[in-house]
């Protein structure tokens, strides 16, 4: 059995990450995922804050010829079952998945957890991933070990792709949310007497304002830093400039 672990951050609030999770695929990077289906979805009977979802993920990817030969498979389509648990009170999203195809030969158990980042719980999300890869084969120990190695490498590659792919979905999602707010903003200007949920609209507007403020703040900070840097470069060379300038003037006078 081999273990793979990985931790990283997403620069988006947990609510957005957990919402985007349902639309993670398709994305331009993780092209090996060709379909995602919901098989079962229920609110927990004991806790209404908990939503459990079972999904079937259809994957098409190149498996080495020798593995295909060993297991006598002709098709490279495989299925993964994933059960995810959202706890909106604790703000956690835990996804547990396992391959359905070839699972008597090779089993990959993956656990992913998204939670608010402890250093910045409002704006950032912590991503923790763990996978256990086991190849079964009794006396075929060396082959199993080789298969585990190949799987770990492939898993590592896909984990990287997954991160980049999800980033692109999150970005798109974030922009859509912003443009939705813009639309609502416009609606509010045009039809003041329209009957719609004012509290959620004003919430969105406040969020939008906050976003805008954040943008201004970060731009200002980076501009300030940039200016500071330029200033310090200039001050470093200040004496040199003055020297050269004075020399020039001197020469011209003569």
């Amino acid at each position: 059995m081999k273990l793979f672990q990985n931790t990283s951050n997403f620069e988006y609030p947990w609510e957005q990450v957990s919402t985007a999770n349902w639309n993670k695929y398709p994305n331009e990077v993780s092209t090996h995922v060709i379909a995602v289906d919901v098989l079962r979805r229920e609110l927990s009977k004991t806790d209404p804050n908990v939503l459990i979802t079972e999904r079937l993920i259809t994957v098409k990817q190149g498996v080495p010829k020798w593995i295909m030969y060993l297991i006598g498979a002709g098709d490279n389509t495989s299925y993964v079952r994933e059960v995810s648990t959202v706890n909106k009170k604790d703000k956690t999203l835990v996804l547990k998945s396992c391959n359905l195809t070839m699972c008597n030969i090779l089993k990959v158990f993956e656990t992913v957890k998204y939670s608010p980042h402890p250093m910045d719980p409002i704006n950032k999300t912590l991503f923790e991933q763990e996978a256990q890869i086991t190849a079964y084969g009794g006396s075929l120990g060396r082959i199993c070990s080789k298969m585990e190695d190949w799987s770990i490498n492939r898993f590592c590659e896909n984990a990287k792709k997954g991160k980049i792919g999800f980033e692109s979905v999150l970005k798109e999602f974030h922009e859509k949310l912003k443009s939705k707010v813009d639309d609502l903003d416009l609606d509010l200007d045009l039809d003041l007497d329209l009957d719609f949920d004012l509290s959620s609209t004003s919430n969105l507007i406040v969020n939008k304002m906050n976003d805008a403020m954040e943008d201004v703040k970060s731009t200002a900070t980076s501009m300030f830093k940039e200016t500071e840097k330029k200033c310090s470069i200039l001050s470093d060379y200040y004496d040199l400039f003055i020297d050269t300038f004075e020399k020039d003037l001197h020469q011209q006078k003569n």
């Binding site: 919402t19 639309n23 398709p26 379909a35 289906d37 079937l56 299925y79 798109e172 999602f173 859509k176």
Partner: peptide, 11 residues
Amino acid sequence: MGNIMSSSFAP
């Protein structure tokens, strides 16, 4: 959200 949805394993 108008995102591109993934397709089903069964078309």
